[in-house]
Design a protein around this nucleic acid. Structure first.
Lengths: 225, 225
DNA sequence: AGAATAGTGTCTGTTAGACACTATTAG
DNA sequence: CTAATAGTGTCTAACAGACACTATTCT
């Protein structure tokens, strides 16, 4: 029946490092786009579920099962890969701060880059392969929007965190400053967003430690601007 | 390279009829799921863009280019079609009230069904083909959620409409009652949601006619519950 | 000591929800 | 006439933004 079609997955891995939203890019070896950077990804195998392919590739590239994986969108322009027709299902993956397994597993040169440097074309030095710049932009837009009306920000953090940690996640992802006091009031007021552990970061008087609550949606949302 | 893979698109067409959210289903002829109802859809052709396939199939099935088409999600379980591997990209399409071209073009038996009857399995008499029940549920969830924070409700209406018309769209899609007065206040307060035409539905004193404004997002959102 | 941060509290403007009242149109 | 609907206005409770004050920890 003519030209073969392949199904691929591409992963937009987002995390927060040094107060910035970062993504993971890998260095491509073979053409096309040789020596360019791209999102981690790979072809879906025969008889393999697409979601299963994501889990497999994620494990191979990062060595962990991440706290949040969601399907982002599918990119199906016929010429997006010059070799053959590849329809790619892109996923958004949020990694907790401090999970730095990518460097280890990154024999193929996986590295973190700040997303705003990438989207401005300042880093990496070469443009992203294929339509990955577009995919990354869509992923960042989705992540930024979802922080407003979901409790996903907590997935960027370890199991226990302070409200200051959580606020810094918002500030890093959105690139804005938030009032510490009003922020804490809002977060506490949303049932199930965070739960008090009873303990504190250091001695008494230090910031209180929280863990993630069962709520997934925030209604009404937490707004920027 | 083994078993062939096909790319398909499936369309969740939503509109409002008789105060209910309705979807369009078509009757399948060939097996599998012979004589079952399914979402309209079809295979993406070689060298055809996925979005272009949507436009083509939409034109063939409904005879119009609809006001809103957005990608919903991709369904890629390996066994979702028993014949061969078919990865399906599902789209959400909103049709304006009164656009009833489906019956005309529907030689293959296209019909409207209320989505809540479908999701409760009461109509049509046979379960939906493939994983289309799941796709439809996802589409309805997406549409209901998007009415909260976007101005998409207006795409269900003709070019000019009253605030009562718009409110009935919300009530039909959400299945709730809204206060006419508070609703109108909110809609008017969102810049660019609606624009006054200056005219009225009938003589003076009749409800004022509006058209869609340029705004796409509503911030803060319009909430249910 | 000084700076940064966490927690508490206050004040104010905005807005959503509930509801009342009037005018007009449709049946 | 009567019922339904559109438009206006009011009252109140909830909440976000801004900001002040204190205590504690880090440097």
């Amino acid at each position: 029946m003519g030209r073969p079609v392949a199904i691929a997955v591409d992963l937009a891995l987002l995390t927060v490092r040094d107060g910035q939203l970062d993504t993971v890019l890998v260095r491509r070896d073979p053409p096309p786009f040789a020596r360019c950077w791209s999102l981690p990804g790979g072809l879906v195998r025969e008889e393999e579920d697409v979601d299963a392919a994501v889990a497999r590739i994620l494990l191979a590239k990062t060595g962990l099962d991440p706290p949040h994986v969601e399907q982002l969108a599918t990119y199906g322009a016929p010429d997006r890969d010059p070799r053959m027709r590849v329809v790619s299902v892109a996923y958004l993956v949020l990694l907790p701060i401090g999970a730095e397994p990518v460097e280890t597993a990154g024999k193929d040169g996986a590295r973190f880059f700040p997303v705003d440097a990438v989207s401005r074309g300042r880093r990496p030095p070469t443009p992203l392969a294929f339509d990955h710049a577009r995919i990354l932009t869509d992923a960042v837009d989705r992540a930024r929007a979802k922080l407003e009306y979901t409790t996903l920000a907590a997935t960027f953090l370890p199991a226990e965190f302070t409200l200051g940690d959580l606020r810094r996640v918002y500030e890093s992802v959105w690139g804005v400053g938030l009032h510490h006091s009003n922020f804490a009031r809002k977060v506490r007021s949303v049932h199930g967003f965070v739960e008090a552990t009873g303990r504190r970061a250091a001695s008494s008087g230090a910031p209180e430690l929280f863990r993630r609550g069962p709520a997934e949606l925030m209604m009404p949302p937490l707004m920027r601007a």
